[in-house]
Amino acid sequence: MWGWFGGGAAAQKKKDSAKNAILGLRAQLDMLQKREKHIMNQIEEQDQIARKNVNTNKTVAKAALRRKKTQEGTLDKTIAQIATLEAQINSIESANINRETLAVMEKSSEAIKAIHQGLTPEKVDEIMEKINEQNALSDEIVNVITQNPIGEQFDDGELEDELERMQQEHLDEQMLNTGQVPIADAVHKMPTPSNADPISSKKVAVEDDEEAELLKLQAEMAM
């Protein structure tokens, strides 16, 4: 994949170039740091010579001081060079990190683009609408299934009658087991009007005749 920093061999060449530059700078920096230590040792050595001969041989002491001053100037330049190299190394490393970071970000951008290929807000709305339609259809199917159960349907009234009959049979069975006569049987065993006392029947007939006679008299008096 080609990006902002090239691709393939070109990208690898740039990466190697930055790496080689850093390696070269670090090698030079290492050499300068060693030179710095050597110069500092030379300065210390000339200082000791000057101190040793300050009272006995001023010519030697002055020569040592001149060499010391020269080495101090060289040391200042070396320290400045070291600082410059360190700054360059930091700059190259930062630039290299930035390049690598941007390269990764570019690849991520391409990956997101590939994922979203052909996917638009309108397409998402269309898909969501289809999903909602299918969910609504599923709910309708469930409602139809639950409202129309499979199998023969029975009238609730018939079921209630059957239940009452079973309860009555159970009650009768309990009465037989306990020796008590059910209320319904007691009612059936009560004497019927045909078995009633003859005297009571005659009394009722007499009362009817008297009532009829009374009505007849009332009618005659009204004439």
Rank of each mutant, 00 (worst) to 15 (best):
G3D: 01
G7Q: 04
G8R: 02
A10C: 05
A18Y: 08
A18T: 08
K19R: 12
A21D: 13
L23A: 15
L23P: 00
L25Y: 01
R26V: 02
R26E: 04
A27G: 06
L29P: 02
M31L: 14
Q33R: 13
M40L: 14
Q42P: 01
I43F: 06
E44M: 11
E44L: 12
E45P: 00
Q46W: 12
K52S: 11
K52N: 11
N55H: 12
T59G: 07
K62V: 13
A63P: 00
K69I: 13
T74K: 03
D76Y: 10
D76W: 09
D76T: 12
D76C: 03
I79P: 02
Q81G: 05
I82M: 03
E86P: 00
A87Y: 06
I92Q: 00
I92W: 00
S94N: 13
S94P: 01
A95S: 13
N96R: 11
E100Q: 10
T101F: 06
K107F: 08
E110A: 12
E110T: 07
I112W: 13
I115T: 11
K123D: 02
V124M: 05
E129C: 02
K130V: 07
N132K: 10
E133S: 07
Q134F: 10
A136C: 00
A136K: 08
D139S: 06
D139P: 00
V142W: 02
N143Q: 11
T146G: 01
N148W: 08
N148E: 07
I150G: 00
I150W: 05
G151E: 05
D155L: 13
D156T: 05
G157H: 10
E158W: 10
L159H: 06
L159F: 13
E164M: 11
E164C: 00
R165M: 08
R165H: 06
M166L: 14
Q168I: 09
Q168A: 11
E169M: 11
D172F: 08
E173C: 03
N177T: 06
N177A: 14
T178N: 12
T178Q: 10
G179F: 09
I183C: 00
A186S: 08
H188R: 11
H188F: 10
M190P: 00
P193S: 12
N195S: 14
D197W: 01
D197A: 05
I199D: 14
K203T: 11
E211V: 06
E213I: 09
L215Y: 07
K216L: 12
L217W: 06
Q218Y: 08
Q218V: 03
